[in-house]
């Protein structure tokens, strides 16, 4: 079944127009490939072949062993990096630069917020670009800050806040922008465990009542299973898809009950073993060791 759809999509891609396939697909990666080829530096094949799609309103996590090209993948989707081959399609449009309707929360919260602006000004700046008038901007900023629980800190500077609060500012800025797709690049990698749990629940609740599509990149297996409706497991470099794991946990999730749910343990164990295999260099596209030997002979 998946093979047939794969084939038809291949066939379709030969058609002249980039046929807007399924209306329900928000983000579609088609045979994405990225090789860093800077003159004078050794060539690095980061992503070999990635094909997956994210439906509208879905929360999908991407995990992989360290060095799996997760950040490369996210920057490619965000239109900050040119692909070597393949294409990323957002809402039926091929991404060639940072697309409209996408907001990114970067890993380095401390360095993605403008330190010379207050929290309010940071959240407001992208809205100015949208051409909203002062009242509308004020309204959206206030609502976004309320969503993340930072109303009190609106007039402080980011560096006056704790790490977790700074990342909340970055999230507020992203949701105030009202994107259709929200990309998050290991956003909680640098905060302590308690803050992390709070922020995970914040992402879940924002996702649920804003109806935004979220692609969440992380290296933390528990986080991926806890947050995602699906977990996309990547191989080691050069990256291919290890497995697309469906997370059939209840939609209402809770740090205590969900994490002690037997199904959570099973899924976590499954993803964990996939990552371990990926670390060992076990990859779906690798030829058998003896086959490689035979080809060499």
């Amino acid at each position: 079944m998946s093979i047939t759809t794969h084939l038809t999509s291949r066939l379709k891609s030969d058609a002249p127009a980039a046929a807007p396939q399924d209306q329900a697909v928000a983000l579609d990666l088609r045979a994405v490939q990225k090789t860093y080829d800077t003159p004078g530096r050794p060539q690095v094949e980061a992503i070999r072949h990635l094909d997956f799609s994210v439906r509208k309103g879905e929360l999908v996590c991407v995990v992989g062993p360290s060095g799996a090209g997760k950040t490369t993948l996210l920057r490619s989707i965000a239109g900050l990096l040119d692909l070597t081959a393949g294409e990323v399609v957002l809402d039926g449009n091929v991404v060639t630069g940072p697309p409209q309707g996408m907001a990114v929360v970067f890993q380095e919260y401390g360095r993605s917020l403008f330190p010379w602006m207050t929290v309010r000004q940071n959240v407001e700046l992208p809205l100015k670009e949208k051409g909203l008038d002062r009242a509308a901007r004020r309204d959206k900023v206030n609502r976004a800050l309320e969503e993340v629980g930072l109303t009190e800190a609106a007039d402080q500077h980011p560096w006056q806040l704790s790490g977790g609060m700074q990342q909340r500012v970055a999230i507020a800025r992203a949701i105030a922008f009202e994107p259709t797709v929200l990309l998050m690049d290991e956003p909680f990698a640098a905060v302590d465990a308690q803050t992390r749990a709070e922020l995970e629940d914040l992402v879940r609740s924002l996702w649920k009542h804003l109806g935004v599509t979220v692609l969440f990149v992380t290296h933390d297996i528990d986080e991926a299973v806890y947050l995602g409706e699906r977990v996309i497991v990547l191989s080691n470099r050069p990256t291919v898809l290890m497995e697309d794991v469906n997370v059939d946990l209840p939609v209402e999730r809770d740090q205590l009950t969900t994490r002690s749910h037997p199904r959570f343990g099973e899924l976590r164990g499954h993803v964990y073993s996939l990552i371990q295999r990926a670390k060992r260099g076990d990859r779906p596209d690798a030829p058998m060791p003896d086959a490689r030997g035979a080809a060499g002979a």
């Binding site: 920057r75 965000a78 239109g79 900050l80 630069g97 940072p98 409209q100 996408m102 907001a103 990114v104 970067f106 380095e108 360095r111 993605s112 403008f114 010379w116 602006m117 700046l125 992208p126 100015k128 670009e129 922008f177």
Partner: peptide
Amino acid sequence: LEPVLGDTARSYHLSRWRRLVFVVLPGAS
């Protein structure tokens, strides 16, 4: 200038002028 700030400015589609006034010049100040 911090590259992440440049990426942030790009991903939020800040115009050349806004990038200059709100990002580049304060960052270099």
